[in-house]
Each structure stands twice: as structure tokens, then as C-alpha cells.
């Protein structure tokens, strides 16, 4: 690219004019101010959002404390709690960790380390990037017509109307939803591993797998961890696909405890679902406050995962830069 052709004549005239005039760069100052105010606006909205939610919901948490966390879904606002929602969100997280992480990292390893440069690889690559852009509600359809049916057959005990609309089906759906994100972020982290390290490993007679296992993955681990944490946070906040998979929005019988795996073959709800359900109840029913309280709990979980991921990345970026 020739540099001379890129600068339009306009620029040169502009420069000449300014040189002759001198003085303060008023236009530049305004431009800069406008740019800063974009970020400040984002920051302000974020603060307003958090303040609004805390203003409404903090009272519920301080008044009811553990009761709010351990009570089941009820029709009266002052008795209703988020026990089952937390349980559903927890198990969805388990599925994401158990399915999306290994398969996503595995696919990333294939793409970065093994894949030959051919049409199939390019197809997979484009496909993954497109999957990352498919609306989450469409994944709900996938969950509804494939995973719910699969879960129906998978758990011999579950029969009737709710057959298959289980925690397991929801978990698999959200694991599939975040799979492309896990692949893309992991692949980026693996790509950043310096060539020297691979060469050193191959140079002493390590096989490709030895090299990946003992050098590439440890080096890429912080980046992979960051990406996986972000995708976990994304999965825990998703509501739309769960609605299609058949999350329960009203009352939900609670037969199992928090950590009992029997829950996998049971009907489910989750934090975002409960928030959706409560948010649309009449304004003076007391549920708006409950919604805000539930949002605080969800934000703590999700933003914690995000914050850890961001901190981790910054720390390692500094370390790599030798600071």
C-alpha cells in the first residue's frame, strides 16, 4: 500500500490552514470530549442500572436473608424464594463445564494444532463463527426438538406431559449454545502460544500430543480459562432458550435437594426464568422487589465469573509483557 495515496488532498489543506492559524485546537477538544462522553455514558447507565436494582431489591435480601435463597417458588411475594432457580442454574453450570468445556477446547485444539489447511477446515471455521451468531432463542428450538426428546428416552422414569423437559435437556442446550464461544476463545489462546516453545518440545523428540499436553495447553491455560469463564457467565444468564426447552414459570414441586443428581431428570427452572416470570407481575404485588433481589443474586454470580476472567487476563497480559 502506498502511503502517499491514502492521505487525501483535503488533509494537506487542512493541515496548512491550521499551521497558519495556530492557537488552541478547539475542534479537537470537542471531538475528544464527545468520545470520552460515550464511555462515560456507558458507565453512567451501568451505575444507574445497578443502583436501581439495589434500591429495589436490597431490602428483600436484608429483610429475609437466607429465607429468600432457600424458599421455593410461591404465589405470595413475601414467601416466594429462589431455591429451585438457584438449583437449576447450578446444574446448568455443571453441564456447561462438563460438556462445553472439554468439547470446545478439544475442537479448538483440532483447529489450531491438527487441522490441515483445506476446505473442510475452512467450512468448520466459518460454521463455528456463524453458530456464535445464531440467536439464543433458535438454540431453544434445537433443545426443544432434539434434547427434550432425547432426555425423554434417556430417563425411563419420566412420563406424561413434562416428559423430557428436564434439567438435563436445559443443561445440554445451554452447553451447545456456548460451545462456539468456548471454541473461538480457546483457539485464540492456543494461537498465542509462541512457536519457540513448540519447536523446543518437538526438538527433543516429543510427539504432537506430548507437545500439546505439556506445553501448549499450560501456556494457553489462562486465556482458555478466561474464555470459558465468560461463556459460563453467558450461559447462566440465558433465559430465552430455557423458555423453549420448557422451564417452569409458575409453581414447581421440589422433591430433590440442591446437589442431588436426581434433579437432572426432573422439571426445572432457573434464575433468569424466575426473573422473567416475576418481572411481568403487577407492579404493586411485591414481586418487583423480589425480581430485583433475584437480579442482585444473579449479578453477583455472573459478574463474579466475569470479574475473575477479566482480572486473570489482565494479570497474564502483564506477566507476558514482562511487567
Amino acid at each position: 500500500m502506498k502511503l502517499g495515496t491514502v492521505l487525501p488532498d483535503q488533509t494537506r489543506k487542512d493541515v496548512e490552514r491550521r499551521l497558519q492559524r495556530g492557537g488552541i485546537d478547539f475542534g479537537g477538544f470537542v471531538f475528544r470530549l464527545a468520545l470520552v462522553s460515550c464511555l462515560v455514558f456507558a458507565l453512567l447507565v451501568l451505575l444507574v442500572l445497578v443502583a436501581d436494582v439495589f434500591d429495589r431489591g436490597f431490602g428483600v435480601l436484608t429483610d429475609r436473608g437466607l429465607d429468600f435463597l432457600s424458599a421455593p417458588l410461591r404465589t405470595r411475594a413475601d414467601e416466594a424464594g429462589i431455591f429451585q432457580s438457584l438449583r437449576g442454574t447450578f446444574w446448568i453450570g455443571v453441564f456447561v463445564v462438563a460438556l462445553a468445556f472439554p468439547f470446545g477446547i478439544g475442537a479448538a485444539i483440532y483447529l489450531e494444532e491438527y487441522a490441515p489447511d483445506n476446505r473442510l477446515t475452512r467450512l468448520i471455521d466459518v460454521n463455528i463463527r456463524n453458530l456464535a451468531g445464531v440467536p439464543s432463542v433458535v438454540y431453544g428450538i434445537l433443545g426443544f426438538s432434539i434434547f427434550v426428546k432425547a432426555a425423554d428416552g434417556f430417563f425411563p422414569g419420566s412420563v406424561g406431559d413434562h416428559a423430557g423437559k428436564t434439567t438435563a435437556a436445559a443443561g445440554v442446550t445451554l452447553a451447545v449454545l456456548v460451545l462456539p464461544i468456548v471454541i473461538i476463545t480457546s483457539a485464540e489462546a492456543i494461537r498465542a502460544v509462541p512457536r519457540e516453545i513448540r519447536e523446543a518440545s518437538y526438538g527433543v523428540g516429543a510427539t504432537q500430543w506430548d507437545t500439546i499436553r505439556t506445553n501448549v495447553l499450560p501456556y494457553a491455560a489462562p486465556g482458555i480459562l478466561t474464555g470459558t469463564l465468560l461463556s459460563l457467565a453467558r450461559a447462566l444468564g440465558e433465559a430465552a432458550p430455557l423458555i423453549l426447552v420448557g422451564a417452569v414459570q409458575g409453581r414447581l414441586g421440589s422433591r430433590t435437594g440442591f446437589f442431588e443428581p436426581e434433579q437432572l431428570s426432573e422439571q426445572f427452572t432457573a434464575m433468569p426464568i424466575t426473573i422473567t416470570d416475576w418481572a411481568t407481575k403487577p407492579a404493586n404485588s411485591g414481586f418487583v422487589e423480589n425480581t430485583a433481589a433475584a437480579i442482585i443474586v444473579l449479578l453477583v454470580v455472573v459478574l463474579l465469573a466475569n470479574a475473575v476472567a477479566i482480572l486473570l487476563r489482565n494479570r497474564f497480559e502483564n506477566k507476558r509483557a514482562g511487567r
Binding site: E196, E199, S201, G203, V204, G205, P218
Partner: peptide
Amino acid sequence: GMVFQKPNPFPKSIFDNVAYGPRVA
């Protein structure tokens, strides 16, 4: 075996660097 232009030890301990080849073998 090979020694490279830029020293390229693994980001591991001195012991693990030397033991790496025999271990994978």
C-alpha cells in the same frame, strides 16, 4: 537433537526442562 537460535527453555523449572525429553520418551 537441536539447539535453537534464541534460547527457548520451557516456562518450567530447570529440572523439568532437562527431564522433559526423557520423560516424554
